[in-house]
Design a protein around this nucleic acid. Sequence first.
DNA 1: TTTCTCATGTAACAAGTTACATGATTCG
DNA 2: CGAATCATGTAACTTGTTACATGAGAAA
Lengths: 170, 170
Amino acid sequence: MSLRHAVLGLLSEGPASGYDLMKLFDVSLSNVWPATQSQLYAELGKLADAGLVDVVAEGPRGRKEYAITEAGLAELRHWISDVEPASVQRSDMLLRVFFLAQLDPEQARQYFRHQAELAAKRLEYMESIRGFVEEGGDNLSVNGRIALEYGLRLGRVQREWAEWAEGQIR
Amino acid sequence: MSLRHAVLGLLSEGPASGYDLMKLFDVSLSNVWPATQSQLYAELGKLADAGLVDVVAEGPRGRKEYAITEAGLAELRHWISDVEPASVQRSDMLLRVFFLAQLDPEQARQYFRHQAELAAKRLEYMESIRGFVEEGGDNLSVNGRIALEYGLRLGRVQREWAEWAEGQIR
DNA sequence: TTTCTCATGTAACAAGTTACATGATTCG
DNA sequence: CGAATCATGTAACTTGTTACATGAGAAA
């Protein structure tokens, strides 16, 4: 049920339309919780049915502006502090590692080299948006920087681990 | 389509029944790719329909033993070396971080403290299975140790990051 | 003989993906 | 006027979760 809370979280910063949320998602949450446009609109409908958000205004082109309700805020806070985050995170990158014996050693080393490169690229990307996010003083930016720091640290261990792993293949 | 390849990967080590695979999953892959029993049996059926595995023996209690086919091995190798792993990994733990402004500062610090503790517990758990996995000389164990090393390094940054983040909340 | 483990499956539902459909308004 | 952008939605499909159903064979 995390998409639901992602939407509630964005709306906790102020009212927005589905279209607004979509764009907001793309520049913020999509790195930790991707969502598609159709998923978003469907979720807004369900959220409204459940009374966690309200349609507070209707604009041109059928635009509907949503705002979080008291019940929605309560649900959001409850989710943040009382619900345990998922303990296992799926990784098809690590899944492949288990089966590397199906490749010959040089290909297996290549796999790790490639993962190291990808991690390096992600690091570069995160460094680049760091300057961009640096400015925002809003809640999302402040906490987004904490999340970004996680990404940076994660990227570094990924790169180092992949380099180490390459050396493990004899 | 990763479950499919997880099953192919396990079968690449030798024939097994759905029941065998289930137990194997629990002690190995479930940490990087959880799957339920019903998912497994369904996938085996689809895999057989697609000609990537064959039923090579039938035993007591309706037991069916599956073996990977040449086509299955080819598909597995192709997936490992030619298909890019997913670039974004969902994290509802990081998602919550974006919305921490909804809690008061002490609660937010508590959140990070709790995450640091969880990371420490996971580290302990991984240290404990490390000795256990240390022995196996089979392919799955050798590469499993490389995956485990990833888990250990990840756990350490998670703990350190959470401790750092706690200090960021003013 | 009763209980445990082995063993496979179905059904209902929730979540996520991909593609398509449609139309209003704004801007150059 | 034509193109870009704004704006919402539906449909088909795949993947994952939860719960239930059933029964054979082994061991106590």
